[in-house]
Simulated assay, not measured.
Amino acid sequence: MRPDKMRRGSWAMPTMRLLAATALAIPSIAFAGPPFMTDDPEPTETGHWEIYGPLVEVEGRGDAFGGSTGVEINYGAAPDLQLTAGLPIGFEHDRAGWRWGAGDLELSAKYRFYHDEGTGLSIAAFPGLTLPTAGNGKVTALLPVWLQKDRGDWSLFGGGGYAINPGGGNRNYWTGGIAVTRQIDDRLLLGIEADRQSADTIGGRATTSLGVGGIYQLKAPFRILASGGPTFVDGGGAAGFHTFVALGLDF
């Protein structure tokens, strides 16, 4: 993303397992770029902080859904290097009511190893780990590569990678996406995206998620980020949903 545009950090959403009946139909969202599920290769500027909080991520179907709320912290540790930590509180909801618990600690590092201002092309690797504080007690990881091409007020970005997802009934999977955004004016950025994930459980099904999102710049250093859309499971069935809302702080 061009330097004059509002930036999105990276958020590694913890995998929230719903009831067995819904787990096969709901994808896990990992290491996404607020407010989009798809990430971009732009790191936080050197010596600067990006903080998203409070933030809320939710995914599910009907009254069975799960997600997290908490804080994501991004720091520009060096030129082209961003360090990220996610500190979430997880929740689930179904007909039996609400359940809350500590979310998994999320750590990742984005390194942009190619950037050409002349062509507007950037490429970055963004490996991350999720360290368990609850859930299946296993360390999970995502190993993605993200690319971006800028032209005027438009940006095209996407990519994906391989997720290591140990635990009983789980399987490793591939995930990726593509997004297009446009800077409408000095305050508003809008975009659309499509994401695809292979099955992350044994006997599970792949999913496709569509979404729209935007970033609105408030009085500096604050901004509002939001996105959402439907999620479709291979083989049919009612569509699920995903949504993200956060307050951003950049300094």
Rank of each mutant, 00 (worst) to 15 (best):
A20G: 14
A96C: 00
T69G: 09
D186S: 15
R223K: 13
G235L: 02
G137E: 00
Y114H: 15
K149T: 02
Y216I: 07
Q183P: 00
F31K: 02
S209Q: 11
L24C: 03
I73W: 12
W174E: 05
Y114F: 15
W11R: 06
P230V: 02
W49I: 01
I73N: 04
W49D: 01
G103E: 02
S198Y: 10
G167F: 13
E117R: 09
D4V: 08
G60P: 07
T231C: 05
E57V: 00
H242Q: 14
P88S: 10
L249S: 04
Q217F: 04
V180M: 14
G160S: 09
G158W: 05
T207R: 10
A78L: 09
F113D: 08
T140P: 03
P34N: 13
T133R: 14
L190S: 07
L87F: 13
L225P: 02
E50Q: 15
G160L: 07
P166A: 07
G204A: 05
N165R: 12
G60T: 02
P27L: 04
I215H: 01
G191Q: 09
G211V: 11
G158C: 06
G228I: 06
N170R: 15
D150C: 03
E92H: 07
E57C: 00
R182D: 03
L189W: 09
S198D: 14
T208K: 04
T15C: 12
L247I: 08
H93E: 05
I224H: 11
T175F: 05
R95Y: 05
R61S: 06
N74R: 12
N172D: 15
M1C: 05
G47C: 07
A134G: 13
P144A: 04
L105C: 03
P144K: 10
H115Y: 11
D150P: 00
G240P: 04
G167P: 11
G76D: 06
V145E: 01
Y75W: 14
L18E: 04
A206L: 03
V145P: 01
T175C: 00
G120H: 07
P54C: 06
S122T: 11
T133D: 02
A85I: 11
G103Y: 06
R8D: 02
L190A: 10
V58I: 10
L189P: 00
D80I: 00
Y111P: 12
Q82C: 00
G67T: 02
A64T: 06
R7E: 11
K219N: 13
E42V: 13
A77D: 05
L83C: 05
K5L: 10
G161T: 02
P166G: 05
I73F: 07
F232I: 08
G62L: 03
W154A: 04
G158D: 03
D116C: 09
G135Y: 10
R205C: 00
S227G: 08
F241R: 02
G240M: 03
S68V: 09
T46Q: 15
D195F: 11
P27A: 05
E117K: 09
L188K: 09
A194V: 13
G33P: 01
S198L: 10
G152V: 08
W98M: 10
T207E: 01
T15G: 04
A134Y: 14
G160H: 10
T175V: 13
G137R: 07
L190W: 09
L19C: 08
T207H: 14
A206I: 01
K149R: 15
G167H: 12
T44L: 08
S198K: 08
S122R: 12
E92I: 06
G120Q: 07
R7T: 13
A25Y: 11
